[in-house]
Design a protein around this nucleic acid. Structure first.
Length: 288
DNA sequence: TGGCAGGGTCATA
DNA sequence: TATGACCCTGCC
């Protein structure tokens, strides 16, 4: 991969195993939107970005090499060897099909608190509504950031959210999840759930720690561990993944314990496998 | 236009 | 370990 700095843009040439559409629509994030043109706009923390792709050329608009190196290269996981990950998983026949459908998926390295709140909101919910609630949360309580002549909003901090009540959150229309959002903010800000410690813990201990938060069960915890803490042995099992397992592994023992099935089958790369499967099942609209 | 189901989790029994 | 209830709203 070659990096070119030109006219306030960063242009990456010869990028492989990276597709913006696949990466943003494989279910790991909720804040990247397709612009009217061929680009996407979103944020990492308080850093907004517009990014576009033409084949193996990726353009990051209005940024610097320094910002690319300190923020975006890490966020998009561009130093990781996805060919090696895919080669490992491709020993499984189903995974070979899923990978060929979503070869360009990258697992974003997201902020833990944003990931925690986002997936709490995802519970028993649908994607358009999840995005709406998160957008209203950021607009109401996130720091405004000037961007390309307009304003975008950073994800609110835990400290900000601890000052709010359920009545304050009512306009978000998050329903019963509002009390979980407040509990997560309180535990994150107070250190009752210690994010730095979670990074250092193994998967099982980290999951126990996150489940101290109200509204965080197995599935939400796995998503947060995978997308926010890079615990790649996490394998979130939602209705879609259960569906694809039913469809593609009819004789296997995933029914009693899908997570154990995934550990056995995909080992330390379960999280990547989950993303390929999730994208595959949704793209192919595999029936219930 | 009504009714169902949705990226689950929690509280009961 | 197994059922409902849960806020609200896309979507059929």
């Amino acid at each position: 991969m070659q990096i070119e700095e030109t006219n306030n843009h960063i242009v990456l040439h010869g990028v492989t195993e990276f597709d913006l559409e696949q990466t943003f629509s494989c279910g790991q994030c909720f804040r990247w939107e397709r612009d009217t043109g061929e680009t996407y706009t979103g944020l990492f923390g308080a850093h907004p970005l517009r990014i576009g792709q033409q084949g193996d050329v990726i353009t990051l608009y209005h940024t610097t090499k320094e910002e690319y190196e300190t923020i975006w290269c890490g966020y998009f996981d561009l130093d990781a060897d996805y060919r090696a990950i895919q080669a490992h998983l491709a020993r499984d026949a189903v995974m070979r099909r899923a990978i060929s459908a979503g070869r360009g998926i990258r697992l974003l390295v997201q902020e833990p608190f944003e990931t925690l709140i986002s997936f709490i909101i995802s519970a028993n919910n649908n994607i358009p509504r999840i995005k709406g609630i998160i957008a209203r949360l950021c607009e109401a309580f996130g720091a405004p950031v000037p961007f390309e002549g307009g304003t975008v909003y950073a994800f609110p901090t835990a400290e900000t959210l601890t000052r709010l009540t359920r009545a304050d959150l009512a306009p978000l229309r998050a329903g019963f999840r509002d009390k979980y959002i407040l509990d997560a903010a309180q535990k994150a800000a107070s250190g009752a759930v210690d994010f730095d410690a979670v990074y250092a813990m193994d998967y099982a201990a980290a999951k126990r720690e996150l489940k101290k938060v109200m509204g965080v069960g197995d599935k939400v915890a796995d998503c947060v561990l995978l997308f926010g803490f890079q615990k790649y042995d996490a394998f979130p099992v939602d209705v879609w993944v259960r569906r694809v397992l039913e469809h593609c592994y009819p004789d296997d023992a995933h029914r009693s314990d899908a997570a154990a099935f995934a550990r056995e089958r995909f080992g330390p790369y379960g999280g990547f496998a989950q993303q390929y499967l999730f994208y595959y099942v949704r793209e192919n609209k595999i029936a219930k």
